[in-house]
Nucleic acid binder design. Sequence first.
DNA 1: GGCTGTGATACCTGGGCGGTATCAGCGCAG
DNA 2: CTGCGCTGATACCGCCCAGGTATCACAGCC
Lengths: 282, 282
Amino acid sequence: MDTLETRELRYFVTVAEELHFSRAAERLGIAQPPLSRAIQQLERRLGVTLLDRDRRGVALTDAGRVLLDEARVLLDSAAAAARRTQRAAAGPNRLTLATKAGANHELLRRLLDAHGAEPDAAEIEVVLCGMGDQARMLRDGRADVAFMQRPFDALAGFDTEELLTEQQVAILPAEHPLAARSSLTLADIADVPDLPVARWPSQDGTYEPGRGPEIHDLSQLAQLIALGHASAVLCASSRSWLWSAHAAVPLTDAPHVTTVLAWPAHSRSQAVARLVKTAVDL
Amino acid sequence: MDTLETRELRYFVTVAEELHFSRAAERLGIAQPPLSRAIQQLERRLGVTLLDRDRRGVALTDAGRVLLDEARVLLDSAAAAARRTQRAAAGPNRLTLATKAGANHELLRRLLDAHGAEPDAAEIEVVLCGMGDQARMLRDGRADVAFMQRPFDALAGFDTEELLTEQQVAILPAEHPLAARSSLTLADIADVPDLPVARWPSQDGTYEPGRGPEIHDLSQLAQLIALGHASAVLCASSRSWLWSAHAAVPLTDAPHVTTVLAWPAHSRSQAVARLVKTAVDL
DNA sequence: GGCTGTGATACCTGGGCGGTATCAGCGCAG
DNA sequence: CTGCGCTGATACCGCCCAGGTATCACAGCC
């Protein structure tokens, strides 16, 4: 029947991305004829036409699109497997935990303290990464577990354990009139002319159009708010790092944020299991 | 660095399962020396010792155990990718939906009706499978979506959409004294001497020890209950197929059951997306 | 009609996969 | 202690196939 070789998948993905055999061959560092042949073999083995080569170029068939998606995650998973194996060899009882700036420090600290107190606790290396990077780090095997937040982070494909649900708050300059209010709504802060809501980059690093300043960093944000040039919406635990120039006002209509511990769905690691157990008992 | 070839992974998994090079080679249909060499190559490429070969046998190292887990899901995923590609080629706008006997018929029917009414709806093939088989069918690419139930089915690694939450009920012979009650608890039915609770097989097909009759089939169960030889705990929608000789009594303390629509987390299929959208709007 | 650029075909070469034969360590029966 | 049996490792060889070069067939286009 089948058994897709990873070499063939690598070749196919490159051709599917370039839609051009010669360029794909160049990217792969091989000549074009062997590449053509490899793709033909793959098609023959599967009994499926993956690419339509007619005049003026190459196009993916429906089946080709399916295989492209599948092959991408397969290759990523293979690279991840290699990394995880190497990490397991490097330190038998070590874990890498990915989190992001702005996640709940207190909670993480409590988790690490509790886990550290257990017998034969794994040594935990905490990696701070950018806003949507924890998912990537879990997926590509550079991290074993991650602190993530619903509904912000994409949790598809991970196992998760809910740790804490909290309200969101508006972070405002302390001297701004709105800061005196005991609660606010999203509408209240959405269109304040002198206080635009700061904008975070989306997954791909670009910014949605909008008025607020483009932010990529919490300290940047803190600075801007302290200067009275921006507001932001963050989860309530952010209060822990606020300056005296900041004020936090609960938002009544913003969705609640749940901090979760996430790990690859198929993980059978003892160390991960122990950490999760500690987290559940917290 | 790396790029694990699937051939190597296949070899490694077999050796790790047999813990014996010669037997593994036999299972793989090759001679022992090339197998030894392939494993050595894999270890050298990763820079990791996967197997301890000392006197009297072969043992997995920690890293080897990690790679074994990873490799198994990788190989399964590869086989799944091949199947999905072939299915996509066979019928471009077809979906296979896996469900189990005992799942909510009404709900499925409503979903299929609603979806069928949409423009360019996918043709949906419904596959009935055994109790825990939907997860396997999703994982190995024989199904695109599945009807599953929380907390019974393992949903790790899938994306899900909740469809309906319902109470569980005890199914009893109609003439049994307990059948007259308006509600029951799990304790009420747990130890009725003449009415043991039927036992379902677990994932691996074996039965937990216990008193109740071993069941593998809904019609079998229905028969046994009608005869007055067993009781069962099922979700409330099971009422739809009850016989007149059956009675259903709500259980106040059994966990609620949520029927979910599940699909592989990385699926980008348009057809799946449309079906899910229909389900959400239901 | 050349010219350019596409992917496919033909054919050759070499590395690597798989084969056989054999070795080296260890346990064990005697 | 010694030979035997069993393990996995090593040595070496042959052949297949991945990859290279050269070329073709076909399309668009000045």
